[in-house]
Structure formats: C-alpha cells, structure tokens
Design a protein around this nucleic acid. Structure first.
Lengths: 211, 211
DNA sequence: CAGAACGGATAGTCAAGCTCTCCGTTATGG
DNA sequence: CCATAACGGAGAGCTTGACTATCCGTTCTG
C-alpha cells in the first residue's frame, strides 16, 4: 500500500506519518523506485501501536521511540521489558533524603520478608517507586504506605496474570509486543477497574446519592 | 511567611509560585496591606500537592486546577472523587464501533455476573476503560481482555484497601485529600509494584541472566 | 532613610507534537 | 503519450503547555 492508504488504514494523518518516518518511529517503506515506497500491514500495526502507547499509555513520542528501538533491536525479552519499564517510570521527583530512606527500608523489608530476592537500589523502577512512596509521606499520607505489603501481594498476583497471559504465545516477537501491551495498556485498564471498584465501595461507605 | 520563604519551603521557584497564583491553582495569600501578602502552611501543602499530582501523577496543570477547585468547593466527597477520576481518565482514544461494543459487553457481563450494580454507559471512567480494552483488541492482544474478570477481582480487593485506608481518617477535608492521594499516587505505586512483580516472575520464566 | 524584598502585570522562552507548503518525480486514466 | 493527480522528502511554521524574566511602583527592614 502507499501513503494515502496507510494513513486511511491507521487513522493517522499523512503529515503525521511523514513526521514519524522522519523521527524514526516508523521504519521506511520498501523502495519501488528512487523516490517511491510501498508500506505493509506491519506499518499499519506499528502506527496503531504508537497511537496506543501515546494516547492510552500517555507516553511521549521520545519514550515510544526508545521502546520501539528496543523491540526492533536484538535485546533479550527481559532486557527489552527493562527498557519499557524505564521509559514508563520517567524521571522521579526529588524527595528529601529521610523520606527516601524511610520508603526504601519499607520496600526492602517487604521484599526481604517474602523472599522476593534482592532489591536493586538504583533500578529505575525501584527508584521511582521509592520516590512515589516518599512523596506520599511528605504530603502527610503515610497511611497509604503502611498498607504497602498488602498492595504488594495483590500486585504480585496481578503480575502472575500478566506473565501467564504473555507466555501462552508462540512467536518470540509476539511475546515481546504482548509484554509491552500488557504492561502499558494493562496499567491503564487495571487503574480503570480499580477506580470502578473505589466508586462502588465508596458509595456504600460514604452513602452518596447516585446521579 | 512571605514569597521567598514559601518558595524555599515548597521547593517551587518564586516565578512559578506567582504563575500558579495567577492561574488560580494556589489561593491568594492573606493581605497585610494593599500590595503585600502573607502565606500559611496550607499554601506550602498546596504547592507540594500540585508538585505530586503533576510530577508523580503525570497530570496537566489544567487537570490539577479542576481537581483543586472540586476539593475547595462544597461538593460531596463522592462527587469530588468523580471529578478526580474524570481528570485522570482524560479523553479516550477513538476506537472502532465493534471493538467498543465487544469491550462493553465483556465488562458489563463481569459487573452483572458479580452483582456489582449497573454499569453506566457514559461514565468517563467506564468509557475510558472500554476504549483501552478495545484498543488492546484492535492491536490483536485480546488475550489480555480474556483475563479481565480475574483482573477485576484483584482490582476490587485493591479498592477495598484504598477505601479502608481513607475511611480511617477523622477530618472531612483530610478524607478528600487522602482519597485524591490514594487514587493518583496509589495508581503509580501499584503500577511500580506490578512491574517489580513482572520482573521477578518473568526472570523465572524467561530465564534471563541478571546484569 | 537607603536599599532589599514584595506583589503584580506583561512579555519572552522553550520543548513537544504536529501541520503546511513546496518541489521535483512518478504513477495513471483517457 | 500526455495531463494531472499522488507521492516522498525537506523545511519552515504553528499551537499549546509550562514556565521564566523583566519592570515597576510599593513596602518593609537594618
């Protein structure tokens, strides 16, 4: 297919497709002549993926680019998912030294107590999680963190579902893309379900009238 | 306290504090003379809250403004949390009619089967959740959605923890702010825990070497 | 009472994410 | 075979969000 059809199929404007090509988010089409190209279904899928990651996942194009590069590269699945988590985590907010220390000990204690291995202090995901916990404390809402172990157990069960969903697949490439989708869209979907649950339960507790 | 101290205490530059005042994100200080003002600890807390919502929660200033307005207004807690969820949800991506229908039926079936009440078709959170599920399907990853009921049960248990954390508080205002923090930071924290879990479990399954 | 700090207003800056325009080349229907 | 439409590529321009810098007249402070 050519530009126009690629655009129509994916729902992305022609000018934007060209921009993505320039930025390297979309691999160039197969040349049919020095200045003409042909695009495939893979290009459509790639555009849909970019849309999903930015619109649903809320990722920046720069992050999407880094993730796509990791996918296309020859990294192991584990390392590729590492890049995904890195980009999702972003840059952590700076927090006070003591709040960070408190959060670290809290988290490390839980991991240690449950035999979940060793917590790496400079792992991006860990740093971000610690910063988020520290932020909650600085806001005076450390109650949230006091329940952390219960949250962690539930999170592990969610992760079991995630891994289970992905490992059922056959193709290597499919597994990586599925991992990406499960992580990025999965976060949003779970948050949505959680909010629904909060609303259901808080209505009972707070006893508000429905609208 | 005055400008300089407010800025130092909160870690927000003076120019930015002025900007927030202009935008109405921060209530004006108490006048001590026609062109001088005094700020309180509440202002510091408000600035910290804004930082947390934008930096950790990834919210835009416009969304933060809407949420703060809801908090300061005389809405019921339930309605205030509705505004929070609305702003967190954002504008859903457009998806095909049939994917949306499929996602809706999936979700509605689960809610119905578990006696969780009635699902409102135009509720922002629901619309967003449906759109996210539909997006996953359009990407060819409907496997994720097939486990939706299991995810939903876990999400409800997380929501129970959330509500439990919040309802232990005494002051009315504290409950609302805690609800906000639990929802916004809570989402990030849970996502972080989930990612840690994914890494822990996928290492076992995929058997990658550690770095 | 001199000089620093303040509050307020206006304008400027910077990055992200497109969008528009042009141009020379290539495909295509009559 | 030719008119014209579409194409690919490059560059400049635009819009929004989130600040940041500069003034200016007033007020506090040593």
């Amino acid at each position: 297919m050519r530009m126009a059809e690629l655009s129509a199929e994916s729902g992305v404007p022609v000018a934007t497709v060209k921009y993505y090509l320039r930025e390297g988010l979309l691999p160039p089409g197969e040349r049919t002549s020095p200045n003409q190209a042909r695009y495939s279904a893979a290009h459509v899928q790639r555009l849909r993926l970019i849309k999903a990651l930015t619109e649903v996942g809320g990722m920046s194009l720069a992050s999407v680019g880094a993730v796509l590069e990791a996918i296309d590269g020859d990294k192991t699945p584990h390392r590729t998912m590492g890049v995904v988590q890195e980009e999702l985590a972003g840059t952590p907010p700076q927090v006070s030294e003591e709040a960070a220390q408190w959060a670290w000990e809290l988290l490390d204690g839980i991991v240690r107590r449950n035999g979940w291995g060793e917590l790496k202090r400079k792992h991006v995901g860990v740093v971000n999680l610690v910063a988020a916990l520290a932020t909650a404390k600085e806001l005076g809402h450390e109650k949230l963190a006091e329940r952390l172990e219960e949250y962690a157990h539930l999170a592990l069960r969610v992760a079991e579902l995630d891994v289970d969903t992905v490992t059922g697949l056959t193709s290597f490439d499919k597994i990586i893309e599925a991992g990406l989708v499960v992580t990025v869209l999965g976060d949003r979907i779970f948050a949505g379900l959680r909010h629904l649950g909060q609303e259901l339960l808080s209505r009972e507790v707070l006893g508000d009238v429905p609208d």
